[in-house]
Nucleic acid binder design. Structure first.
Lengths: 220, 220
DNA sequence: GACACCAGTCAACACCCTGTCGAGTGGAAT
DNA sequence: ATTCCACTCGACAGGGTGTTGACTGGTGTC
């Protein structure tokens, strides 16, 4: 696996061969094709041949750029999670100035990012069951967010704004998990789901009550 | 699809042919094989041939009993959800006598049922992404639980034990979604997860604070 | 007892998808 | 002019799914 053809570039990102120049266009074309096809049908119904033809290359050539279909999705997921991390940014600093507004900002930004790439997010959720690599990456990303939320909760408890209760980490896991599943249902549109218009406020309310026991936590 | 070979029995359950007598053993054998294999490897790594050989029949013969591999899992899921429904039972009646204990009972019973069939539950979660039938069944089941919780929340608000706030349905969706995802992580063991020992109490706390704004809601 | 019927069974086939191998090809570097 | 290598693809091997059509043996019927 991952023959690492060229020791040219820096770190070989995500099993993708670190091509030089000509190949870059093709790699981009494959990713663009994947995003386009994902808009019209589920990931499982897209074959490597579809991806290759869409990028104007043959199937064997596809393997020069990506080791598998899943690796393409992984690259797409990488982008989304990076964007989400950037969007989340500093929403949790100076939480004390206006806790409700800050938490809402955090949730709304994630919502906007995921909503903007719902096809990729949905495809990843589907593949997570069968692909260990996607599972691992998602677990990493989630762990990062859980830690950030855990620290924020502990900060709020330390300043007396939030009461003690569950271990902050467990609470952070539960709340992040809720968001993930609720967003999934909202974007997928199958099964019981919160309307997209309301979802941020619904999630926010549960977060605030779980953390503060009130929907109007105190500022400084 | 679903040729409906024999118009013998009543409603043909879940695409499974309504066999008469000899075939019943084989059908049971297939289901048992599926459960056994699921204990040792993921659903995607189990082929129809594995299922057939495990039940002592050939692959074509498998198709006499089930229209696909997924249909086997669907039958297994049916059992689990029926068991869960039975276990949940009357936990939400007379909620007012001891709300905390009742809610805990509900969550604990679901936890016990799912934990007792974690392989099936995990497999379904994985397949849900690719199989519309599983998705539909799960959506149905979830809808039922959401409605029950929604009604319970409204009951608690009516008697003045729980404050108004989010639409009860949205809250019920969010809480049920949280449980699903948190259990999944706990049983799967990948990514950030709550320890199995603690998971019921963690979920309970979030439910109580979201519904009542306190972890010690008032009795009658 | 011969016959028809049918649930149940499977070898063989057609098909699709994945991943690999080996033989190219063309442009840049020596 | 030659070498080298990123890049390309035809052809193959392998494995999974779903279907077809022929066969078998038990049961009920006349």
């Amino acid at each position: 696996m991952t023959p690492a053809r060229t020791p040219t570039g820096a770190a070989p990102t995500r099993g993708r061969r670190p091509g030089r120049s000509t190949g870059d266009d093709r790699e981009v074309a494959i990713l663009a094709t994947a995003e386009r096809l994902l808009r019209e049908r589920p990931f499982g119904d897209i074959s490597i041949d579809d991806l290759a033809r869409g990028a104007g290359i043959s199937r064997p050539t596809f393997y020069f750029y990506f080791p598998s279909k899943d690796a393409v999705l992984l690259t797409l997921l990488d982008r989304v999670t990076e964007e989400a991390n950037a969007a989340a940014g500093d929403a949790l600093v100076r939480l004390a100035e206006d806790p409700r507004a800050r938490w809402r900002e955090l949730i709304a930004r994630f919502h906007a990012t995921f909503g903007g790439h719902r096809d990729v997010v949905l495809a990843c959720a589907q593949v997570r069951g069968t692909n260990a690599e996607v599972r691992r990456l998602w677990a990493e990303v989630l762990e990062r967010w859980v830690r950030a939320v855990e620290a924020a909760i502990e900060g709020e408890r330390a300043r007396g704004a939030a009461p003690d209760g569950l271990p902050a980490r467990d609470l952070a896991i539960a709340l992040n998990s809720m968001n993930e599943r609720v967003w999934y249902a909202t974007f997928a549109g199958d099964g019981p789901a919160v309307a997209e218009r309301d979802v941020v406020d619904v999630l926010l309310d549960v977060w605030l009550t779980a953390i503060y026991r009130t929907t109007t936590p105190p500022s400084l």
